[in-house]
Amino acid sequence: MTNIDARILIAKTGLDGHWRGSSLVARALRDAGFEVIMLGMAKVDEIVQAAVDEDVDLLGLSIGGHYNVVERIVDTMRQTRPELPIFVGGVVPPWARKKLEAKDVEVYPPGSQLEEIVGAARRLTGVDA
């Protein structure tokens, strides 16, 4: 494994403790050589703050709640660090997926393959550029 010079922050947006999805994704990203910071269940301002403090190259949100919370995170993030790419996974209804994609957020719903997600991380962090 070659280390990749890029850091990814992964946070859970809701108070739902199902950890299977985010932990699998984190593991796959680490195995691919990324540095992954797991924030766990965090509030909107905590997620934005961590993304700034840790100077990450990509933000991954595990959605365990309503679209509107994710929208607030995305909108705040765009004001704070507009260039930071964001991708999300979890239970995202199709109507919410459309709204997120319109905001340039990539969505990886259940059934997404880990290699797809790792590929997206490489592309979004510019590793493949």
């Binding site: 947006t13 809701g14 108070l15 739902d16 509030k43 301002d45 919370v69």
Partner: peptide, 25 residues
């Protein structure tokens, strides 16, 4: 889940911060 699983009332800051999630599950 937000309130029940954590034994929080809705005015708990953790819940208020994600108020749109309340009642979803």
């Amino acid at each position: 889940r937000n309130t029940a699983d954590h034994l929080y009332d809705v005015d708990n800051p953790e819940v208020v911060a994600r108020h749109e999630d309340v009642g979803l599950t």
